[in-house]
Amino acid sequence: MNVPAPRPFRVSTGARVGFLLLALYAFYAASQLDFTWDRFITGLDNGARFIGRMFPPNFSNWELLIKGLVESLQIAVLASLGGILISLPVSLLASRNLMPSWATWPARALIAVCRSLHPVIVAIFFVKAVGFGALAGILALVVASIGFIGKLFTEAIEEISLKQVEAVRATGASFANVILFGVLPQVFSRFVGFATYQTDSNLRSSTMVGIVGAGGIGGTLFAAFQRFDYDFVCAILLSIIALIMVGEMLANLIRAVFVEGLGFGSRDGKRPAPAVPSAAKEFD
């Protein structure tokens, strides 16, 4: 019997069928959504005019721009603070290795509800409850932060080694001391990673909640759009991108200092970085 060996790296039949189905779905969905070539071409014409009107960006209204950006920053800072402060106890309550199930279930449900609502939807509710302005944005992003870092904190706490916790407990430490000296030191660097990630993400979202009236640069942006002030829109977008890039650099620096042990002076004191918080890396 001479069975030919399968060619290496052959694409399997299952994968082929999968790709075919995916392609078919794409065509079906595109036809359902009424995408036509004509529309696309007309759009490109519009797009050229649109971009023509966006450039050069118009920074003459810079006072409004700065005011919006500062408000976005305030929203991001306060929402991150609130989110982190609330997430800490909630995630301690939610970790199955420390708490009995009557405590973990409600905490987990809270995190799940916060996670599944989009910040903009939450912002609509808070605008209704506390009126237009920065406070609604802060509260909406606090909810979003609890949903996101609460989950990551919980997972980090559930992965700790219980030996150190037992050792601390064996010395007769109180519950608070077990948490402070047995649990937190093991998760601190990962917490810092998640917290900086969330601050970064809140900064991005804080530029958006303004679209529904919850303060920040988003409101200015939306108003400029509706007045067809496209050169001001371009100026706002460029400033948002710049702000977020600076934020990302700062976040990297914070991670370098707190996670990798970067300090002033000698660099050789740098200790090996602990496992990179993979979950935080997964989300951009």
Partner: peptide, 28 residues
């Protein structure tokens, strides 16, 4: 890549609604 990520999807949607008009094409 950073520029793509810095602009929120709602803001991208605003831009594309301006270009292609309201509808699913702008959203996609």
């Amino acid at each position: 890549l950073v520029s793509s990520r810095s602009v929120n999807s709602l803001v991208w949607a605003l831009l594309f609604v301006g270009i292609f008009g309201p509808g699913a094409l702008a959203g996609t």
